[in-house]
Simulated scan of single mutants.
Amino acid sequence: MKTKVYIDGQSGTTGLQIYDRIGAREDLDLLRINEDKRHDIEERRRLLNAADIVFLCLPDEGAREAVSLIENDRVRVIDASTAHRTDPGWVYGFPELSREQREKIAGARRLANPGCHATGLIAGTAPLIRMGILPADYPLTCYSLTGYTGGGKKMIKAYEAKNRDESLSAPGLYGLDLRHKHLPEMKAVTGLIYDPVFLPVVDDYAQGMASTLLLQNRLLHGRPSAAEVCQRLADYYRDEHFVRVRPYEKKPDTIYANHLAGTNHLELIVGGGEEQTFVTALFDNLGKGASGAAVQNMNIMLGLDETLGLE
Protein backbone atom coordinates (compact mmCIF):
# COMPACT_ATOMS: atom_id res chain seq x y z
CA MET A 1 0.00 0.00 0.00
CA LYS A 2 1.31 3.44 -0.93
CA THR A 3 2.07 6.03 1.74
CA LYS A 4 -0.34 8.96 1.49
CA VAL A 5 1.44 12.33 1.58
CA TYR A 6 -0.07 15.80 1.81
CA ILE A 7 1.86 19.07 1.44
CA ASP A 8 0.04 21.88 3.24
CA GLY A 9 1.42 24.98 1.56
CA GLN A 10 2.13 23.23 -1.71
CA SER A 11 2.43 26.43 -3.75
CA GLY A 12 5.25 27.99 -1.68
CA THR A 13 8.94 27.64 -2.51
CA THR A 14 9.60 24.78 -0.05
CA GLY A 15 6.36 23.01 -0.93
CA LEU A 16 7.12 23.12 -4.64
CA GLN A 17 10.64 21.85 -4.03
CA ILE A 18 9.36 18.93 -1.96
CA TYR A 19 6.89 18.08 -4.71
CA ASP A 20 9.70 18.16 -7.29
CA ARG A 21 11.60 15.60 -5.23
CA ILE A 22 8.76 13.18 -4.52
CA GLY A 23 6.15 13.82 -7.24
CA ALA A 24 7.29 10.95 -9.46
CA ARG A 25 7.85 8.38 -6.70
CA GLU A 26 5.78 5.25 -7.15
CA ASP A 27 5.79 4.37 -3.44
CA LEU A 28 3.90 7.56 -2.52
CA ASP A 29 0.34 8.72 -3.15
CA LEU A 30 0.34 12.53 -3.17
CA LEU A 31 -2.88 14.13 -2.02
CA ARG A 32 -3.49 17.46 -3.79
CA ILE A 33 -5.81 20.28 -2.81
CA ASN A 34 -7.65 22.19 -5.52
CA GLU A 35 -6.23 25.66 -6.03
CA ASP A 36 -9.56 27.31 -5.24
CA LYS A 37 -9.73 25.49 -1.88
CA ARG A 38 -6.24 26.26 -0.55
CA HIS A 39 -7.77 28.46 2.16
CA ASP A 40 -10.77 26.21 2.85
CA ILE A 41 -10.33 25.03 6.46
CA GLU A 42 -12.56 21.99 6.13
CA GLU A 43 -10.90 20.77 2.94
CA ARG A 44 -7.49 21.21 4.54
CA ARG A 45 -8.72 19.36 7.65
CA ARG A 46 -9.92 16.47 5.49
CA LEU A 47 -6.60 16.12 3.67
CA LEU A 48 -4.50 16.60 6.80
CA ASN A 49 -6.32 13.71 8.46
CA ALA A 50 -6.33 11.49 5.37
CA ALA A 51 -2.56 11.50 5.01
CA ASP A 52 0.07 9.24 6.57
CA ILE A 53 2.74 11.96 6.30
CA VAL A 54 2.07 15.71 6.23
CA PHE A 55 4.57 18.38 5.24
CA LEU A 56 3.79 21.84 6.62
CA CYS A 57 5.25 24.53 4.35
CA LEU A 58 3.54 27.48 5.99
CA PRO A 59 4.24 30.56 8.13
CA ASP A 60 4.50 29.79 11.84
CA GLU A 61 0.89 30.62 12.69
CA GLY A 62 -0.37 28.61 9.73
CA ALA A 63 1.70 25.62 10.87
CA ARG A 64 0.27 25.81 14.40
CA GLU A 65 -3.24 26.03 12.97
CA ALA A 66 -2.61 23.00 10.73
CA VAL A 67 -1.43 20.91 13.69
CA SER A 68 -4.60 21.86 15.58
CA LEU A 69 -6.69 20.52 12.69
CA ILE A 70 -5.13 17.04 12.87
CA GLU A 71 -7.33 14.62 14.80
CA ASN A 72 -5.99 11.35 13.38
CA ASP A 73 -3.33 9.96 15.74
CA ARG A 74 -1.66 8.05 12.90
CA VAL A 75 -0.72 11.19 10.96
CA ARG A 76 2.99 12.03 11.13
CA VAL A 77 4.01 15.66 10.63
CA ILE A 78 7.14 17.31 9.25
CA ASP A 79 7.01 21.05 9.90
CA ALA A 80 9.27 23.26 7.75
CA SER A 81 8.42 26.44 9.69
CA THR A 82 10.15 27.74 12.82
CA ALA A 83 7.04 27.12 14.95
CA HIS A 84 8.15 23.90 16.67
CA ARG A 85 11.96 23.75 16.39
CA THR A 86 12.57 24.24 20.11
CA ASP A 87 9.37 22.54 21.27
CA PRO A 88 10.33 19.58 23.55
CA GLY A 89 7.43 17.59 22.14
CA TRP A 90 8.92 17.68 18.65
CA VAL A 91 12.01 15.90 17.29
CA TYR A 92 14.61 18.05 15.57
CA GLY A 93 15.27 16.77 12.05
CA PHE A 94 19.05 16.75 11.73
CA PRO A 95 19.87 13.02 11.63
CA GLU A 96 23.63 13.52 11.31
CA LEU A 97 23.81 14.88 14.87
CA SER A 98 24.12 11.36 16.24
CA ARG A 99 22.88 7.79 15.96
CA GLU A 100 20.44 8.56 18.77
CA GLN A 101 19.03 11.53 16.83
CA ARG A 102 18.46 9.39 13.76
CA GLU A 103 16.63 6.85 15.94
CA LYS A 104 14.43 9.61 17.38
CA ILE A 105 13.59 10.76 13.87
CA ALA A 106 12.69 7.21 12.82
CA GLY A 107 10.09 7.01 15.58
CA ALA A 108 8.88 10.61 15.47
CA ARG A 109 5.22 11.57 15.14
CA ARG A 110 6.03 15.28 15.12
CA LEU A 111 9.25 16.45 13.48
CA ALA A 112 10.63 19.98 13.10
CA ASN A 113 12.71 20.43 9.95
CA PRO A 114 15.83 22.57 10.55
CA GLY A 115 16.20 26.12 9.30
CA CYS A 116 18.67 26.74 6.47
CA HIS A 117 21.06 29.06 8.31
CA ALA A 118 20.72 26.92 11.42
CA THR A 119 21.75 23.82 9.46
CA GLY A 120 25.04 25.47 8.52
CA LEU A 121 25.91 26.65 12.01
CA ILE A 122 24.81 23.45 13.73
CA ALA A 123 26.74 21.19 11.33
CA GLY A 124 30.04 22.73 12.41
CA THR A 125 29.29 23.75 15.99
CA ALA A 126 27.39 20.83 17.54
CA PRO A 127 30.10 18.18 16.93
CA LEU A 128 32.84 20.46 18.28
CA ILE A 129 30.89 20.99 21.50
CA ARG A 130 29.98 17.31 21.80
CA MET A 131 33.62 16.29 21.31
CA GLY A 132 34.75 18.73 24.00
CA ILE A 133 36.71 20.97 21.61
CA LEU A 134 34.50 24.06 21.57
CA PRO A 135 33.52 25.35 25.03
CA ALA A 136 29.76 25.74 25.47
CA ASP A 137 30.33 29.34 26.59
CA TYR A 138 32.47 30.22 23.56
CA PRO A 139 31.71 33.70 22.09
CA LEU A 140 30.83 32.24 18.69
CA THR A 141 30.73 34.37 15.53
CA CYS A 142 29.13 33.21 12.29
CA TYR A 143 28.20 34.82 9.00
CA SER A 144 26.06 32.98 6.49
CA LEU A 145 25.78 33.68 2.77
CA THR A 146 22.61 32.55 0.97
CA GLY A 147 21.07 32.64 -2.47
CA TYR A 148 17.93 34.71 -2.90
CA THR A 149 15.57 31.73 -3.17
CA GLY A 150 15.82 31.43 0.60
CA GLY A 151 13.67 34.56 0.88
CA GLY A 152 10.62 32.98 -0.76
CA LYS A 153 8.44 34.08 -3.66
CA LYS A 154 8.52 37.81 -2.96
CA MET A 155 12.32 37.95 -2.88
CA ILE A 156 12.63 35.66 -5.91
CA LYS A 157 10.33 37.96 -7.88
CA ALA A 158 12.36 41.03 -6.86
CA TYR A 159 15.70 39.47 -7.87
CA GLU A 160 14.41 38.05 -11.16
CA ALA A 161 12.47 41.16 -12.27
CA LYS A 162 13.54 42.57 -15.64
CA ASN A 163 13.95 46.12 -14.33
CA ARG A 164 15.03 45.31 -10.80
CA ASP A 165 16.61 47.57 -8.22
CA GLU A 166 20.33 47.92 -8.99
CA SER A 167 21.21 47.42 -5.31
CA LEU A 168 20.26 43.74 -5.67
CA SER A 169 23.41 43.19 -7.73
CA ALA A 170 25.49 43.48 -4.56
CA PRO A 171 25.52 41.37 -1.37
CA GLY A 172 22.87 42.45 1.13
CA LEU A 173 23.48 42.19 4.87
CA TYR A 174 20.24 41.76 6.81
CA GLY A 175 19.08 40.70 10.27
CA LEU A 176 21.14 43.64 11.51
CA ASP A 177 19.53 43.58 14.95
CA LEU A 178 21.37 40.26 15.42
CA ARG A 179 18.10 38.56 16.42
CA HIS A 180 17.64 36.21 13.47
CA LYS A 181 14.70 33.81 13.82
CA HIS A 182 16.99 30.75 13.68
CA LEU A 183 18.94 31.74 16.80
CA PRO A 184 16.76 29.80 19.29
CA GLU A 185 17.29 26.47 17.49
CA MET A 186 21.00 27.19 16.97
CA LYS A 187 21.46 27.62 20.70
CA ALA A 188 19.16 24.77 21.75
CA VAL A 189 20.53 22.13 19.38
CA THR A 190 24.24 22.90 19.67
CA GLY A 191 24.32 23.31 23.45
CA LEU A 192 25.72 26.84 23.31
CA ILE A 193 25.13 28.79 26.52
CA TYR A 194 25.02 32.16 24.77
CA ASP A 195 23.52 33.19 21.45
CA PRO A 196 26.14 33.33 18.69
CA VAL A 197 26.80 36.64 16.96
CA PHE A 198 25.13 35.70 13.69
CA LEU A 199 24.94 37.78 10.52
CA PRO A 200 23.15 36.57 7.34
CA VAL A 201 23.98 37.86 3.86
CA VAL A 202 21.88 37.44 0.70
CA ASP A 203 23.46 37.72 -2.74
CA ASP A 204 22.61 37.73 -6.43
CA TYR A 205 22.49 34.01 -7.15
CA ALA A 206 19.61 31.58 -6.85
CA GLN A 207 20.63 28.64 -4.68
CA GLY A 208 23.45 27.73 -2.33
CA MET A 209 24.65 28.61 1.15
CA ALA A 210 28.00 29.06 2.88
CA SER A 211 27.83 29.39 6.68
CA THR A 212 31.18 30.21 8.26
CA LEU A 213 32.36 29.94 11.87
CA LEU A 214 35.41 32.00 12.90
CA LEU A 215 37.40 30.51 15.79
CA GLN A 216 40.37 31.54 17.96
CA ASN A 217 42.29 28.33 18.64
CA ARG A 218 43.64 29.59 21.97
CA LEU A 219 40.07 29.59 23.31
CA LEU A 220 39.41 25.97 22.28
CA HIS A 221 39.99 23.08 24.68
CA GLY A 222 43.46 21.67 23.99
CA ARG A 223 44.28 24.51 21.58
CA PRO A 224 43.99 22.28 18.47
CA SER A 225 45.25 23.46 15.10
CA ALA A 226 42.90 23.89 12.16
CA ALA A 227 44.19 20.61 10.73
CA GLU A 228 43.30 18.82 13.97
CA VAL A 229 39.82 20.38 14.03
CA CYS A 230 39.32 19.18 10.46
CA GLN A 231 40.34 15.63 11.33
CA ARG A 232 38.07 15.49 14.37
CA LEU A 233 35.09 16.67 12.28
CA ALA A 234 35.95 14.11 9.60
CA ASP A 235 35.95 11.38 12.25
CA TYR A 236 32.60 12.59 13.59
CA TYR A 237 30.89 12.45 10.19
CA ARG A 238 32.83 9.47 8.81
CA ASP A 239 29.78 7.24 8.27
CA GLU A 240 27.40 9.89 6.93
CA HIS A 241 26.23 9.96 3.33
CA PHE A 242 24.99 13.53 3.00
CA VAL A 243 27.51 15.28 5.26
CA ARG A 244 31.20 15.09 4.44
CA VAL A 245 34.36 16.95 5.45
CA ARG A 246 36.81 18.10 2.80
CA PRO A 247 40.44 17.03 3.48
CA TYR A 248 42.43 19.80 5.13
CA GLU A 249 44.36 22.21 2.95
CA LYS A 250 46.47 24.98 4.44
CA LYS A 251 45.46 27.31 1.60
CA PRO A 252 42.12 26.06 0.26
CA ASP A 253 40.78 27.28 -3.06
CA THR A 254 38.09 29.96 -3.23
CA ILE A 255 34.78 28.70 -1.84
CA TYR A 256 31.73 29.40 -3.97
CA ALA A 257 28.44 29.30 -2.10
CA ASN A 258 26.51 27.72 -5.00
CA HIS A 259 28.87 24.75 -5.37
CA LEU A 260 26.37 22.20 -4.02
CA ALA A 261 23.20 23.77 -5.45
CA GLY A 262 20.72 21.16 -6.61
CA THR A 263 21.94 18.49 -4.18
CA ASN A 264 21.13 17.32 -0.66
CA HIS A 265 24.80 17.22 0.35
CA LEU A 266 26.57 19.37 2.92
CA GLU A 267 30.34 19.76 2.88
CA LEU A 268 32.41 21.14 5.73
CA ILE A 269 35.58 22.98 4.75
CA VAL A 270 38.13 23.76 7.45
CA GLY A 271 40.99 26.21 6.97
CA GLY A 272 43.44 28.26 8.98
CA GLY A 273 46.48 27.24 10.97
CA GLU A 274 47.83 27.05 14.50
CA GLU A 275 46.22 30.24 15.83
CA GLN A 276 42.89 30.63 14.01
CA THR A 277 40.38 28.36 12.27
CA PHE A 278 37.39 28.81 10.01
CA VAL A 279 34.75 26.15 9.43
CA THR A 280 32.44 26.65 6.44
CA ALA A 281 29.34 24.56 5.82
CA LEU A 282 28.58 24.50 2.09
CA PHE A 283 25.13 23.28 0.95
CA ASP A 284 21.95 24.15 -0.93
CA ASN A 285 19.55 26.35 1.02
CA LEU A 286 16.64 24.60 -0.74
CA GLY A 287 18.21 21.14 -0.47
CA LYS A 288 19.86 20.13 2.82
CA GLY A 289 18.70 23.52 4.10
CA ALA A 290 14.99 22.92 3.50
CA SER A 291 13.07 20.56 1.22
CA GLY A 292 15.83 18.01 0.64
CA ALA A 293 16.25 17.63 4.40
CA ALA A 294 12.46 17.24 4.76
CA VAL A 295 12.40 14.39 2.24
CA GLN A 296 15.42 12.76 3.89
CA ASN A 297 13.60 12.88 7.22
CA MET A 298 10.45 11.43 5.66
CA ASN A 299 12.47 8.53 4.26
CA ILE A 300 13.92 7.82 7.72
CA MET A 301 10.48 8.02 9.34
CA LEU A 302 9.15 5.52 6.81
CA GLY A 303 12.05 3.11 7.33
CA LEU A 304 13.35 3.64 3.79
CA ASP A 305 16.81 4.30 2.42
CA GLU A 306 17.26 7.95 3.39
CA THR A 307 18.83 8.77 0.01
CA LEU A 308 15.70 7.73 -1.92
CA GLY A 309 14.77 10.41 -4.42
CA LEU A 310 17.65 12.65 -3.35
CA GLU A 311 20.46 11.53 -5.68
Rank of each mutant, 00 (worst) to 15 (best):
M1R: 09
K2D: 12
K4V: 10
V5C: 04
L16Q: 12
R21I: 00
I22C: 08
G23C: 13
L28S: 07
D29R: 06
L30W: 13
R32F: 15
I33P: 01
N34D: 15
E35D: 12
D40G: 05
I41G: 00
E42R: 10
E42D: 15
E43A: 13
E43Q: 14
E43V: 13
R44W: 06
R45H: 11
R45A: 15
L47P: 00
L48T: 02
N49K: 09
N49P: 07
A51P: 05
D52C: 03
D52Y: 04
I53T: 06
D60I: 02
D60A: 05
E61C: 00
A63Q: 04
E65K: 13
V75F: 09
S81M: 12
H84A: 05
R85P: 03
R85W: 13
R85A: 14
P88R: 05
V91N: 07
F94H: 03
P95F: 06
E96S: 12
E96C: 08
E96L: 06
S98L: 09
R99K: 08
R99A: 11
Q101T: 06
Q101G: 04
E103Y: 07
I105W: 10
A106P: 01
R109M: 08
P114H: 10
C116T: 05
T119L: 01
P127I: 10
G132R: 07
P139E: 12
C142M: 11
Y143A: 09
S144I: 06
G147K: 01
G150W: 02
G152T: 07
G152H: 08
K154D: 14
I156R: 06
A158V: 03
E160L: 12
N163C: 06
N163K: 08
R164K: 15
D165R: 04
E166M: 02
S167E: 07
P171A: 07
Y174T: 00
R179M: 14
H180V: 13
H182V: 15
H182W: 14
L183S: 10
P184D: 15
E185I: 06
K187A: 01
T190P: 01
L192G: 02
L192E: 04
I193T: 14
I193S: 09
Y194A: 13
D195K: 08
P196W: 03
F198P: 00
L199R: 08
P200G: 07
V202T: 07
D203C: 02
D203R: 02
Y205Q: 05
Y205L: 08
Q207Y: 11
G208W: 01
M209W: 00
T212S: 15
L215V: 07
L220M: 11
S225N: 08
E228V: 14
E228F: 05
V229C: 01
R232L: 09
R238E: 14
H241Q: 07
F242Y: 06
V243K: 02
V245F: 14
V245I: 15
P247I: 04
P247F: 01
P252K: 10
P252G: 09
I255L: 10
N258K: 04
L260K: 01
G262E: 02
T263F: 12
L266K: 00
L266A: 01
E267A: 03
E267N: 06
G271H: 09
E274V: 10
A281C: 08
D284Q: 05
G287F: 04
K288G: 03
G289S: 02
S291D: 02
A293Y: 04
Q296P: 01
E306L: 05
T307A: 15
L308D: 09
G309K: 03
L310C: 05
L310N: 02
